[in-house]
Design a protein around this nucleic acid. Structure first.
Length: 960
RNA sequence: GGGUCGCUAGCUCAGUUGGCUAGAGCGCUUCGUUUACACCGAAGAGGUCAGGAGUUCGAGCCUCUUGCGACCCACCA
């Protein structure tokens, strides 16, 4: 026997992935040919109406999905593991359903993240970024990334991601930069881009600005100081202002009070002397000042506070920057110049106290902005940056969202996103780090012609200086926020171009983490609509965080990080995928434990053994069957994958599949390597062609069902398929896995296979096994393929098999098997409850006047494992089983029956309680009148059944 | 301040438009090595569905309310 007694994933996974990849089955451009049903030589897709082409129905012709690009030089973490499990299950499912499926992998240059790592590296070697210019740094980081690159791609393969590797998109690929520049130029021309001096969140350590979204707010203890600002112009009074940042008083341009605040009404328009300086500043009226807070008077520092900036704008106040980018005081009186902000705060407080101007302090909790990477307190900094005016973009996006153009999973995220977009502020896209896409803007050199615009767009960002029309311009040294480029992801991955119908855009679904709904999904939607006029994807599936087994967030500092690759190595890729999908629903942060992976591993092993048993039945079936099979399928024995099981050779290591294309003998030649494909490949980056798979396989022998168990399993498998199809349509991965798990284990193995140990309907065994293998393949690709390759009769790759058709069966017979199951369970339970052990071997089963029992004696005997099943032929004896519709007895001695009395009494009471409940319901006239008729009828039947059961149990009891 | 989510068995979670006795995995108890599988088989215990009120013939599900917990956005001089 070629199947080992347990499934060892490590023996198969790498080889199987290699074989898939070599066969090119993950690339829709290689495995498919044009759909040309009308025979006019043109792909129907390209001539059909796009709106009707992407049908909503069960079987889309194309399925496209992009991978949220993992960091090119990093390792995958548990979240990537979940992402791949979700995306790949979808991809494989739709591939089996016959869609031309394109899962496009990516790699992220991870602008800021990578830069932080690189800079740390640089500093460790005693260098700083300031020793190099941007181009040098860019080249150095490029090399750094190139060195580290590749491991995540191997890890994606280990997870079984069936993505089209030839289409891998790196976020710094030329076509990406091209597309980003095109968009930027369009926005520039449309007036959506502006350069503004605004306050930005600036990290003094990393020396770069962030978008609002990247800022992390944390509650912290702080101090609120009251400082006295004295009025000038001969007034004797003074104002007390409250502040948490006394050092910024040098940048104060006004003191604001609320216009409604009676206390200060007369002071509006007067001036105060700014302490520690010679300056005087005005008192202005502004809503921003809250009369309830502190003293109701607030100092205004437009250059160092977001609110003050706005107050400053309203009152046309000048802005004075008093903190430099590296966190030192500038533009301040000499004795403070050059101090750090912390030193300056100390000195200011001391000097104020000395002058008697410090009037009080109290401890408060307030939220403070931090760098999400290093935790440094961010400094609001006045800087010139590029901004996108998001108003129109957001409005368009909201309109499409409200129209329901994108379906969300979970659904509530649609509302959340709309709410976010409604309050969206302009987007700062400038970053002061060299690792990223250069902003293609050039500034006129001072002294040049004055009537030229100050800034011009130009793609030649490789040049520091350019000349246009005799005017010299220098390059802006900033790079784009990575979200600006990655908001183009669906566009660039699918090679969308203007004026060309692209069957893969919009994507069928965007799957990503719920935590980047705003940062990424929102921006992809805005950008997709702006660039293509269409939403970039039809549906969004958001996954939550994977928490540790105690529900805690994983973090290095807590030491509770689970490495997906360790689990894959220990239990296999399939086990990991099954484990992480189980018990998880869209958008929820949910715990994850190794235990669920163990359970996945067990299922794989179960499936392996199911297949092993069936193969042994097939082998046993002997010569005749093998001859039949040869005449039907042609010489099935000479395939590339055949490893000689059941035949002569038997020398090869089990499961060592050779990397080769496909074992389909009658396949049409795959396009790999031929001229047509070469030319196809070369144009494919521009315009993807749509093809239909040629790699379909699998022809079933016909079968006839010969007992109730066979009809029943057909029905159960059909139900399972419907359930899985419905679950996949609605992105209920956990439920799909759960359904498959229980169908395979609790139904197929525990009931059907047990019964087949005597009946052995070989054609049906083959077909049903293929059904469960294919249905599970999207979730457990490796073990199903390993089995497929080891079975003697299967062809090709399961990865490109046809989704199973419904099985034919007799529904009455299938339903009757439920009776058999009830009987068998009751026999087992009763035997278990009887005193003594090994009861199943001791007592036979007797039936009276029962055709179901008569016809299925053999089936009942093997399932219950009792030694005999016989007709009663005479007076009842032994123990009557608690079954309403069948008169069955366990042939036990009177003494044993006596001992069983107690549990029988208990049983009668339990049934009695159920009966009471049912009767109560029927006595309610409203129920009888208003509930649907079929429910009322059902209740009536149940009452009748329970009554029958109770009277029989009572009769049994009285006999004892 | 605005918004979202959660509370169901010891643990982690399902429960799709309200409808039979509320489910699964793991854990637990008992029995069992029967020629696929101990990564196994059989049987079983365990739940006032966070509390309260309402709508309904009927509520885990709908409405209101209270409590506890998590998260996001904005603000916090």
């Amino acid at each position: 026997m070629k199947f080992a007694s347990s499934y060892e994933p490590n023996q198969y996974e790498a080889d199987i992935y290699g074989a898939w990849e070599a066969a090119g089955i993950f690339d829709p451009k290689l495995t498919t040919k044009p759909i040309d049903s009308d025979g006019d030589g043109v792909d129907d897709r390209l001539e059909s109406d796009p709106s009707t082409d992407r049908q909503e129905g069960e079987n889309p012709r194309t399925f496209s999905i992009v991978m949220p690009p993992p960091n090119a030089n990093g390792n995958l973490h548990i979240g990537h593991g979940l992402t791949v499990a979700l995306e790949d299950s979808l991809t494989r499912y739709y591939r089996l359903r016959g869609a031309s499926s394109w899962y496009i992998p990516g790699a992220d240059h991870a602008g800021f993240e990578t830069w932080v790592v690189y800079e740390r590296n640089l500093e460790a070697k005693g260098h700083t970024r300031f020793e190099f210019d941007r181009d040098e740094l860019y080249a150095r980081v490029w090399d750094f990334v190139a060195e580290q690159r590749g491991s995540m791609e191997l890890q994606l393969r280990a997870l079984g991601a069936s993505c089209s590797w030839g289409d891998l998109t790196f976020t710094l690929d030329e076509n990406v930069i091209d597309r980003v520049y095109t968009t930027f130029e369009k926005m520039w021309n449309d007036g959506l881009i502006y350069r503004g001096e605004k306050l930005v969140n600036f990290c003094p350590k990393h020396q770069t600005a962030f978008a609002d979204i990247e800022v992390e707010h944390k509650d912290e203890k702080g101090t609120l100081w009251d400082i006295e600002y004295k009025l000038v112009d001969g007034f004797a009074t003074s104002l007390i202002v409250s502040t948490t940042r006394p050092e910024t008083l040098f940048g104060d341009m006004a003191v604001a009070v609320n216009p409604e605040d009676k206390r200060y009404k007369d002071l509006i328009g007067k001036h105060v002397k700014l302490p520690l300086t010679d300056r005087t500043i005005p008192i202005v009226a502004d809503e921003h000042a809250d009369p309830e807070y502190g003293t109701g008077a607030v100092k205004i520092t437009p250059a160092h506070d977001f609110d003050d900036f706005e107050v400053g704008e309203r009152h046309s106040l000048p802005r004075l920057q008093v903190i430099s980018e590296d966190g030192h005081m500038i533009n301040v009186p000499e004795e403070y110049e050059g101090l750090t902000t912390a030193e300056c705060r100390k000195k200011v407080l001391k000097d104020l106290k000395h002058q008697g101007l410090l009037k009080g302090e109290k401890k408060i909790i307030h939220s403070v902005a931090h760098c999400y990477k290093c935790g440094t307190v961010l400094e609001p900094m006045l800087k010139e940056q590029w901004f996108i005016d998001v108003e129109k973009l957001a409005k368009t996006a909201i309109a499409h969202l409200e129209a329901g153009d994108i379906k969300f999973h979970p659904a509530n995220k649609q509302k959340v996103l709309i709410n976010y977009l409604k309050n969206l502020k302009d987007w700062n896209i400038s970053r002061q780090i060299p690792w990223g896409i250069a902003i293609p803007m050039f500034r006129k050199v001072d002294g040049s012609a004055t009537d030229e615009p100050e800034w011009i767009f130009d793609r030649r960002t490789n040049l520091k200086e350019i000349e246009k029309g005799g005017v010299k311009y220098v390059r802006d040294e900033d790079t784009f926020d990575t979200w600006f480029s990655s908001s183009h992801w669906p566009i660039v991955c699918t090679n969308w171009v203007e004026e060309n119908y692209n069957p893969y855009y919009p994507l069928n679904v965007m799957e990503t983490g719920a935590d980047i709904l705003f940062a990424w999904v929102a921006r992809m939607i805005m950008m997709g609509l702006y660039v293509t006029g269409e939403v970039p994807f039809k549906e969004v599936y958001l996954h939550g965080l994977v928490l540790d087994s105690k529900g805690q967030k994983m973090s290095k500092s807590k030491g509770n990080v689970i490495n997906p690759m360790e689990l894959v190595a220990k239990y296999g890729s399939d086990a990991f995928r099954l484990g992480i999908l189980r018990g998880r629903s869209a958008g929820m942060n949910q715990a994850f434990s190794e235990q669920s992976v163990v359970s996945g591993r067990n299922l794989c092993n179960k499936l392996w053994n199911i297949s092993r048993l069936i193969q042994s039945f097939v082998d046993e079936n002997g010569e005749k069957e093998s001859k039949d099979s040869i005449s039907k399928h042609g010489a099935g024995a000479d395939s590339h994958f055949d490893n000689g099981r059941g035949r002569e050779s038997g020398t090869e290591i089990p499961g060592r599949v050779r990397p080769t294309r496909c074992k389909n003998d009658d396949r049409e030649p795959t396009a790999v390597g031929d001229e047509q494909t070469e030319s196809l490949l070369s144009v494919s980056r521009r315009r993807p062609a749509v093809f239909k798979s040629t790699l379909r396989n699998t022809t079933f022998d016909s079968y006839t069902t010969e007992n109730m168990g066979e009809d029943w399993i057909c029905r159960e498998l059909n139900d399972c398929l419907s359930q899985v199809e419905d679950d996949m349509k609605n992105y209920r991965f956990s439920e799909a896995v759960e359904t498959l798990y229980s169908t395979i284990w609790d139904k197929y193995a525990d009931w059907f296979l047990e019964s087949q140990k005597i009946f052995k309907n070989i054609p049906l065994l083959k077909q049903t096994l293929e059904t469960i293998l294919i249905a599970l393949h999207p979730f457990a690709p490796f073990v199903t393929e390993a089995i497929w390759q080891n079975l003697s009769w299967t062809k090709g790759f399961i990865a490109v098999a046809k989704w199973p058709a419904r099985l034919n069966f007799d529904p009455i017979s299938a339903e009757n098997f439920e009776n058999i199951r009830t009987i068998v369970s009751e026999v087992r339970a009763t035997l278990q409850a009887l005193p003594g052990t090994n009861n199943a071997k001791k007592y036979g089963l007797l039936f009276d006047n029962d055709s179901l029992m008569q016809d299925n004696q053999m089936l009942i005997k093997i399932l219950t494992k009792v030694p005999t099943v016989n007709a009663l032929n005479g007076a009842p004896r032994g123990l009557r089983l608690a079954l309403a519709n069948h008169e069955l007895y366990l042939d036990v001695p009177a003494k044993v029956v006596e001992d069983y009395k107690d549990s029988l009494t208990k049983h009668i009471l339990a049934v009695g309680r159920e009966l009471d409940g049912l009767n109560l319901r029927m006595m309610n006239p409203n129920y009888v009148e208003k509930a649907p008729a079929h429910l009322v009828l059902e209740t009536k039947q149940q009452i009748a059944e329970k009554e029958k059961l109770i009277s029989r149990l009572k009769a049994q009891l009285s006999l004892i």
